[in-house]
Nucleic acid binder design. Structure first.
Length: 427
RNA sequence: GUGGCCGUAGCUCAACAGGUGGAGCACUGGAUUGUGAUUCCGGAGGUAGCGGGUUCAAGACCCGUCGGCCACCCCA
C-alpha cells in the first residue's frame, strides 16, 4: 500500500455507500423545500474570530478541536467546526434579516477529535436556521419538520425527542452560581471530569454520564426553578404545539447544549442504535447570537443533523439504496464495430437520456466481454459483430440472470434500435 | 488527550512449541459445456503497517511508532 493515505478521521465515501447518501440528501432537501426553506451555500473557511465569538471561548470545540491556521497574509483562518456561525455571519452580511428567513445548508465540518463510531474529523451536517421569529411556533415547526423527515426516512421508530428550556442568559447565570455553590460542597463525590468542569463549564455537569454525579445532582438546585415567566410560558406553548403536531417528546431537565449561544428551547433527537454517539440531530433557540456577531438584534432558532449518523442508522435499519444497474451493456468486438457502436449509442443517449448505457471499454474476447455484460446487471446487451456492422444492423440480446434461462436474441437495423430498446426495456 | 482490543494477498480470514507464509472470494489464462451458468486445470498478486530488541532462527515474544475499531471525553 502507498504511504500516502487519507488523513485520519477523514474518510472516503465509497461508491457502494453513495446511493444511501443520495437517498438521504434527496429526502432532506425535499422535506425542507416542502416547508419553504431556502438553501444557502457557505464557505468552509471563516475567520477564526467568528467561531470564538459564537461558539464560546471555553468550549472544547474552540479550545482544542479547531483546524486553525494562518493564511499567507498572517490572518487566522479556521475550517468550520459547525454551520450556524457562518450562516449567521452571511445573513447579517447580506442583509437577509429585515424579514423572517428560513435557511438551510449542508456540507462538511471539521473537528480534531479522536475518531470512533459516528464521529470523524471531517463529517457532514445539514443545518436549518430560522431568523426573525421569537415565538415558540417557530421552534415547533423545526421539530415537526424533523419528525416528518424521520418518518419519511423510515427512522421514526428509533428516534426519541428530548426537549428542555435553558431560559435566558440572566436566569442561567443565577442558576450557574447556585449550582456551583451546591457542588463545591460535594466536590469529592463528583467524577474527575465533572470536577474540572466545575470551573470551566459547570452546566455541562448536568449531562454527565457518571451515575454518582447524577445522584449528587438529584439533591441540588434545578434549572427549572430559575426560569423566568416568559421562558416558562414559551416552553409550555412549545409542548402544546408539539402535541398538536403529533410529536411525542420527553422533557429532560438536564439537557443543556455544548455551545454557548443557546437560550430558551433546546432539543435533541437521540437514538440508542448507534452506540456512544447517539445524538443524531440537535438544536435550539439562540436569540442573542445575531447581535453578538454585530447584526441587528434578531431572534433565531436552528438545528443540525449529523449525516454520517443518519447514514449509519439507515444502514442499521435495513434501508437500502442500491446503485442502479445499467439498462444496456454494449459489446463491440473489432475496431470498426467499436466505431459504429460509439456513434450509435451516442445517438440513443441523445434520444433516450434516461437509459443507462454502459459501453464495454478495453479489449477482451467476445466471451469475456459477455461475462462483463452479465455481471453489469444490465437487462439488455447490444452486440456489434463485424458482419452486422457491414449490414448496419445490430444484435440485441436480452440478458437474464435467472438460472437456466436463456435470453432472447434478434438482429435489428440501426434505425429501429431506439424503438426496439424501448420495447424490450418497458416494464 | 486517556483506556481496551486489533494490524498477515484487493476483500474475508487461517496456520504453527518461535524454524524458509495458506484458503475462500475477487482478478486473469485455458479446457469442458447447446447459456455468458456449472465443473476442471493453470496464473498473477504479500520485504507479514513501520522501526528497534530478544533468539542460531520472529508474522508469531518484548519495546516504540503509525494506523484501525470501540469506549471515556466531546458532540451532530
Amino acid at each position: 500500500m502507498s504511504e500516502i493515505t487519507a488523513i485520519r478521521g477523514m474518510n472516503d465515501i465509497l461508491p457502494q455507500e453513495t446511493p444511501c447518501w443520495q437517498l438521504l440528501e434527496r429526502t432532506v432537501s425535499g422535506v425542507l423545500a416542502s416547508y419553504g426553506y431556502d438553501e444557502i451555500r457557505l464557505p468552509l473557511v471563516e475567520k477564526t474570530a467568528l467561531f470564538k465569538r459564537s461558539i464560546g471561548e471555553v468550549t472544547d470545540i474552540v479550545e482544542k478541536e479547531m483546524y486553525t491556521f494562518d493564511d499567507r497574509n498572517g490572518d487566522s483562518m479556521t475550517l468550520r467546526p459547525e454551520g450556524t456561525a457562518g450562516c449567521v455571519r452571511a445573513a447579517i452580511q447580506q442583509g437577509m434579516l429585515s424579514t423572517p428567513r428560513r435557511l438551510w445548508y449542508s456540507g462538511p465540518m471539521f473537528r480534531y477529535e479522536r475518531p470512533q463510531k459516528g464521529r470523524q474529523r471531517q463529517f457532514h451536517q445539514t443545518g436549518v436556521e430560522c431568523f426573525g421569529v421569537a415565538t415558540p411556533d417557530m421552534d415547533a415547526e423545526l421539530i415537526v419538520l424533523c419528525a416528518r423527515l424521520w418518518r419519511q426516512l423510515g427512522l421514526a421508530d428509533c428516534m426519541q425527542l428530548q426537549i428542555n428550556s435553558i431560559g435566558s442568559a440572566v436566569a442561567r447565570k443565577a442558576y450557574r452560581a447556585a449550582l456551583v455553590d451546591y457542588l463545591q460542597m460535594r466536590v469529592d463525590a463528583l467524577d474527575e471530569d465533572s470536577q474540572r468542569r466545575l470551573h470551566t463549564n459547570p452546566l455541562r455537569i448536568l449531562d454527565s454520564k457518571n451515575a454518582d454525579t447524577q445522584a449528587v445532582l438529584d439533591g441540588g438546585p434545578s434549572l427549572e426553578d430559575f426560569l423566568d415567566e416568559e421562558a416558562n410560558a414559551d416552553f409550555a406553548r412549545l409542548c402544546e404545539l408539539l402535541q398538536a403536531g403529533g410529536v411525542t417528546y420527553v422533557i429532560n431537565r438536564r439537557l443543556v447544549r455544548g455551545l454557548d449561544y443557546y437560550n430558551k428551547t433546546v432539543f435533541e433527537w437521540v437514538t440508542d442504535h448507534l452506540g456512544a454517539q447517539g445524538t443524531v440531530c440537535a438544536g435550539g433557540r439562540y436569540d442573542g447570537l445575531v447581535e453578538q456577531l454585530g447584526g441587528q438584534a434578531t431572534p433565531a432558532v436552528g438545528c443540525a443533523m449529523g449525516m454520517e449518523r443518519l447514514v449509519l442508522l439507515l444502514a442499521e435499519q435495513g434501508v437500502v439504496a442500491d446503485t442502479p444497474a445499467a439498462d444496456v451493456y454494449v459489446v463491440a468486438v473489432g475496431s470498426e464495430a467499436q466505431r459504429v457502436a460509439l456513434m450509435t449509442t451516442e445517438q440513443v443517449r441523445q434520444e433516450q437520456p434516461q437509459l443507462r448505457i454502459v459501453q464495454h471499454t478495453g479489449g477482451g474476447s467476445f466471451k469475456s466481454q459477455m461475462k462483463k455484460a452479465d455481471k453489469s446487471g444490465a437487462r439488455v446487451a447490444l452486440i456489434w459483430g463485424e458482419d452486422e456492422v457491414a449490414a448496419h444492423a445490430v444484435t440485441v440480446k436480452t440478458l437474464r440472470s435467472g438460472e437456466g434461462e436463456r435470453g432472447g436474441q434478434r438482429t435489428v437495423p440501426l434505425q429501429e434500435l431506439e424503438m426496439t430498446l424501448c420495447a424490450v426495456l418497458a416494464p
